[in-house]
Amino acid sequence: MNANVEVYTMMYGKEKKKSRDWQTMLFKVIMLAPAVAFLAVFMYYPIEETFRLSMTRSTGLGPTVYIGFQNYIRLFQTEEFLIGLKNAILWAFWSVVIQIPIAFFIAFSLSVYKNKITKPLRVIYYLANVLPSAITAMLGRFVFAPRHGIISSLANKFNWEWLARIDFLGNPDLAFWSIFAVATWAYSGFYIVYLMANIEQIPKDVQEAAQLDGATPWQYARHIVIPMTSYALRIVSILCIVGSMKLFDLPWLMTTGGPGYATSTLGIVLYKYGFVNWQYGRAAAVGVVIFLLSLVFTILQFSLQRKDSDAL
């Protein structure tokens, strides 16, 4: 090692090597600087500000006053926030229980029953997923709107009074489920495509073995596909849960969190505090809660990932 360095120095001279090191150093700095600068300015500084603001009473105009954890204490005494939290948790639970099994069923059937009809379906299922949420919400209202919406109008045509009278978005008990139905429509596409890709990675031998044993589709799914895609299923579940904590677009665009607080989510509570009531401090506190909740589930995802790589 030392000898090499000596030879190198003899051949090129110490200065040249030094200048080369220096150039590489400069190159590294220049290449990393933009990314680090972007994150420092638009992410890490705002994060620090969020934590700081969440400890203050601040309206954006008057002086900011340090009030410790009072914002957080207040939040957990406010009906709007508690309903938002409850909705986020319910939304997460039902997405995992409803959306993922539907997506798995479709993905599994698409990969087992490959024929001319089912082949192009994957593209159709994914279409709903690429539509921006504003358009999804627009179509959702188109279907669920009272009187003029598709469902009401169809019910009128067949004289189903009971169905025509239902106000899907205005009834506090139903609004959550109407939006959930639209979300299932919109989001399942990604889960289907992702699960399908994972199902298709199961080696052909395994499928052939199941074939020789005379497995029914149910047995094949239950004993082979689900265990072999358990990692993908868990990842999708985590994505679902983290997404529920951040949910904003669809409920905001379809009902603005109403009627009352019935479809409020953490994102909506934050938006209303911050940009409708101009209570920056409390809104920042909601932001911290969203961050902590998604952090918990992301760490969970990573620990699952670690276990998986250990198994391999």
């Binding site: 638009f42 500084y45 500000e49 809104a283």
Partner: peptide, 21 residues
């Protein structure tokens, strides 16, 4: 790791400071 950590920050969290910034 500093940049990787940014992947887990939800944009909702920093809306207000971003707006002020």
């Amino acid at each position: 790791y500093v940049i990787l950590a940014g992947y887990f920050v939800p944009v909702q969290m920093v809306l207000i400071p971003l707006y002020q910034l």
